[in-house]
């Protein structure tokens, strides 16, 4: 198992009801696994647009490792 720390923001945190939690994914997990786990855990997010960051860098694909910091980022609204 791969244990990661999830951080949620904005609308995503509102729908999830939490700002942070630990998730366990299967060995060999990647960004796609994160999407799948999220959709299963929070089905209301299915129509929402978001990006995934791994260790504070936006990732569209690639592996996710034990201890990684993964954030689910809704559209930005700075400025």
């Amino acid at each position: 198992m791969v244990r990661i720390t999830m951080y949620y923001f904005g609308l995503i945190a509102e729908k999830a009801g939490v700002a942070t939690e630990q998730l366990e994914l299967l060995q060999g997990a990647d960004v796609e696994s994160v999407h799948q786990a999220l959709q299963e855990r929070y089905p209301s997010l299915q129509s929402d647009s978001y990006q995934v960051s791994v260790n504070r860098k936006i990732c569209t694909n690639g592996p996710v490792s034990e201890g990684d910091e993964v954030a689910i980022l809704p559209p930005f609204a700075g400025g």
Partner: peptide, 10 residues
């Protein structure tokens, strides 16, 4: 900054 910085607004 508007495009790339993760800031959120309610």
């Amino acid at each position: 900054i508007k495009k790339r910085v993760p800031i959120f607004g309610k």
